[in-house]
Design a protein around this nucleic acid. Structure first.
Lengths: 188, 188
DNA sequence: GTCTATATGTGGATAGAC
DNA sequence: GTCTATCCACATATAGAC
């Protein structure tokens, strides 16, 4: 029994993900999400008791999506190839980054101004990325401490490039940082 | 006639700068700013016709503050020393960065989700930084195109490090990126 | 220039019928 | 499970006396 239209709960999370990325979390209202999902506003509260609960589900969904990507990259045995696949994502998404920034970076920046449990939950997105990056550097033969530093450097450069790309609506900033990292990994 | 208390307009901008950095622009209300400035809410509108007008003044003030810093760094003739002074700012401010992130980076990220004239105005903060950085690399002897790339790389690394430092409330991410840049500049 | 009171709009959340 | 109507809090902005 194929379902061409996902169930309401899924639709609400998907719409929340898109609108939060485009407009920011605070500026995205439950009324926006409900309308774009084709769900009446009052019905949203059957699935999510508060906006924050929807935010938590949104972070969970993003974590799952990135976990799927990492699983795919793990099919390649070469850790440098895995790192390059991660970096290539920035290049492939350059136009989206120019329009709305990195979905993870902008979400973390915004939520950590408010604090609270949702902010900490969003930080797990970066944490999971860092852990995976660290594993790849260990496979290359780096020590534990150095692997953590190198992982942080990769993510810092890509996030910084994404921020400039977003601010100037110019994909080149992120692409240049990505290419710089690829050369740097090649020579490691 | 020394004035220990700045005039109202100045106080409003200063308070707006602090609260916007701590809480974000959207979550900071004019009532917050008025209260913390010791100005009645209705009186705010005598100085700024809209919240956006206050936002513009805030960006202008930040541009002026960073311009003053750059003027001080320009007193040193050595371009590498100037670059190091810029990078050192990240290290000196590490605890503030851990609590609230980079004032410029978080402001640009938040405002560019909404778009509009204020977002473009905020981008001038990064633009002025990049122009100054580019000048230093030209002084070192780099070409125009390469100087622009190197300037973008410095800012990307520091902003990315600041974002991770903010997200994890851990100063080390920004400090490591700063130290890495210092070594990189030394060997240029 | 200053300040109180208030208008206006909007967002999160609830009540309660179906 | 679904949906309409509505409550309540709060943010921007205005009116108008002083």
């Amino acid at each position: 029994m194929p379902r061409s239209v996902p169930d309401k709960r899924t639709r609400l999370i998907d719409t929340a993900a898109r609108l939060t990325h485009e407009q920011g979390y605070n500026r995205t209202t439950l009324a926006d999400i409900a309308r774009e999902s084709g769900v009446p506003l009052g019905n949203v509260y059957y699935y999510f008791s508060t906006k924050e609960a929807l935010g938590e589900a949104l972070v969970d969904r993003m974590n799952g999506a990135y976990e799927s990507l990492r699983a795919r990259w793990n099919a390649n045995e070469d850790p440098k190839a895995r790192l390059n696949a991660f970096i290539q994502m920035t290049i492939d998404n350059r136009d989206v980054l120019a329009r709305s920034g990195c979905p993870v970076g902008t979400l973390c920046a915004e939520l950590h101004k408010a604090g609270g449990p949702l902010a900490d939950h969003a930080a797990t997105l970066f944490d999971n990325i860092l852990k995976w990056l660290e594993q790849q550097f260990r496979r290359i033969g780096k020590s534990g401490a150095e692997s953590r530093d190198l992982a942080a450097h990769v993510l810092s450069a890509l996030e910084g490039g994404s921020l400039l790309t977003h601010t100037f609506h110019d994909p080149r900033f992120a692409v240049r940082e990505a290419n710089r990292l690829k050369e740097w990994i090649r020579d490691l």
